[in-house]
Design a protein around this nucleic acid. Structure first.
Lengths: 348, 348
DNA sequence: CTAGCTTCCCGAACCGGTTCGACAAAGCGA
DNA sequence: TCGCTTTGTCGAACCGGTTCGGGAAGCTAG
């Protein structure tokens, strides 16, 4: 079922079959019809490997995602799904690459062995040697998140600073004066993960602006860590009345910790943060949060990468997203007043 | 940076370089060292496309997963992660393929264009034309879940029938007499999805054995659907005291619906089902459930597939998993008794 | 009738590896 | 010293496509 077989059965040369199928040179109506007939009859499809070898493009995008050691969050799942879908629309496949401890090995596979035409990097750091490496090679890539110096790169990122600031302002507007920040795990913060750092920056900045009394915490990516984190918070300052979190995976644990401490959300304690919308709605009360548009981000990332592949000279673009805070049911005015039960407003 | 370049710089022929690197024929110590030196110096890595073309193997596995339309569940995410990791251990990459409405198109890409050496299929149905198709072609594949006639196939599956039965027995043992079943969406049930069908079978069978009064429901894969599903349950039979669910994504909504109806879990109402452990622990109270070992399943699936690829004649194997129910905090004796608050037991 | 242009197709080279058969040099026993 | 095996390397063919240059046939214009 190779191109030679088709050529023979159609009584033409291999090159004619190739041109007939690709349309890169005109082929007479009759010949084309004959070839198409044989192709349909045998269900012939050109081999991806052979084509990739011949024209130097694999029609595959690499998606470099964090290793399973870090628990995955729902946001990442939505993201992966939308990347695959968007890539399919442009006729690209998606190759998954774990960027584990041994990030070199998988990088070598993707780039060294030329398995992909371009790559999308998730979970990047402010100083990210992978990004530098790709830039040095001029290898087509898009990052989800931005490094400390994102100029000249292609990326789509959340403005974590602004989002967390907005969360803090929202709480301050409701009268909260003692607020905690629940960050990603300490290990990630120390490693320089972008969201953890910029989120923290936004938090301290906004807290200073509003003159709030604050404490910041790192928290493992799971429910148990969230639960114990709340214990720490209430132990350190029992007068705390609200928290802001970036830690989607710990959210359930945070709620449990509060319930266990006898704090009712939102009457006694307000919770908000940056979380994918679909997951913000699974907890009770539903979380007032800046909804991470994971699906949009995946789609945009693919668009940027395809643009780079099709037009290597196009100037790099990027998208800095600042989704609004969706008011749901997890925040309320500080201090238990009778009005605490009337919600300030809700978006459907 | 191709093999010819290496050969020239090392002063040998291309074939010698190939043999030196693959070790498929002996090469003298000196020559090997010289070649290795040049390779290291230039950072040479053989092209995956060329190699794939030459030896007919792509070193890539296809992972056919459900389209984003159906919301992803946490279980699927863990699964994808473990597949990628296990595949890497065997030196395989993983190519994602959405099996959307247009399942033919992506199938054609994977098989027709020979992009992958084998495939893992998720979310299969009792009568699944994709499985039949692959079997007819004798294409190496492993399914997650089993069709109505799984003999002779390679698969790793949960024994949904037994798991749901165990859940029902657990509830019956606690004295519950009126129990509801919350299934996956109706659309999936009608399409013949395996888990939905076998789970339902197990439920009705066990309910009959214990003489329970039951009702079964289909429920969308999101929190809002879960919430309204509980409303339907309590409307249809307000005396219902427990439910069993397969629907991980609706879990948060189920809890919310119960809270809203004033039923306290587990004092007034017990909840259990089949859910990945990590997600069972994010809700409060933590869910007593048969923990889906998603990561193990991914690893096992890869093992089966690699075994098939390495030994085409090996007899097909499979794994039918029946994880035990982890007792957590969401089930309790029926009827509000003082002892309702003392938990029957907990596994760490 | 022939020069000049299209139109349509063919053959050959190439992409970058793998693999097979052959052959020269070296080793060894008779 | 001759014949035989062993060891190490090479050249060529092949995998299945794409692409380029060129040539035959058909048509038009001079």
């Amino acid at each position: 079922m190779n191109i030679g077989e088709i050529a023979r059965r159609a009584g033409v040369s291999r090159s004619t079959v190739s041109y007939a199928l690709s349309g890169k040179r005109p082929v007479s109506k009759d010949t084309r019809r004959k070839i198409q007939q044989v192709v349909d009859e045998l269900g012939y499809r050109p081999s991806a490997s052979a084509r990739a070898l011949a024209n130097g493009r694999t029609s595959t995008l690499g998606l470099v995602f964090p290793p399973a050691g870090n628990h995955y969050t729902g946001m990442q799942l939505d993201f992966i799904g939308s990347v695959v879908e968007a890539a399919a629309a442009y006729d690209y496949d998606v190759l998954l690459s774990p960027s584990g401890m041994d990030s070199d090995r998988s990088f070598q596979r993707l780039l060294g062995e030329r398995r992909v035409d371009g790559a999308i990097l998730m979970e990047i750091r402010l100083e990210d040697d992978r990004v530098d490496h790709l830039a040095a090679l001029d290898f087509p890539s898009v990052t989800i998140g931005r490094t400390a110096r994102p100029e000249g790169g292609r990326w789509v990122a959340l403005d974590h600073t602004a989002l967390v600031q907005a969360c803090v302002h929202h709480l301050a507007d409701l009268g909260h004066r003692r607020v905690a920040f629940v960050n990603r795990p300490e290990q990630l913060l120390r490693a320089g993960y972008e969201s953890a750092h910029r989120g923290l920056d936004g938090f301290t900045k906004a807290a200073a602006e509003r003159g709030l009394t604050v404490r910041t915490y790192c928290c493992g990516d799971d429910a148990a860590s969230g639960q114990s984190c709340v214990q720490r918070i209430l132990h350190d300052d029992p007068a705390t009345t609200a928290l802001v979190t970036l830690n989607e995976a710990a959210l359930g644990g945070l709620y449990r910790g509060l319930a266990q401490a006898g704090r009712h959300v939102p009457r006694d304690f307000s919770v908000t943060g940056v979380v994918a919308g679909r997951w913000a709605e699974t907890v009770t009360p539903q979380l007032t949060a800046a909804d991470v548009p994971a699906a949009d981000m995946g789609r945009l990332a693919v668009e940027l990468l395809v643009e780079r592949l099709d037009h290597p000279d196009a100037p790099p673009r990027h998208h800095l997203l600042t989704p609004p805070i969706s008011l749901r049911a997890s925040t309320g005015p500080s201090g238990a007043t009778p009005e605490a039960d009337t919600r300030p407003g809700t978006t459907p």
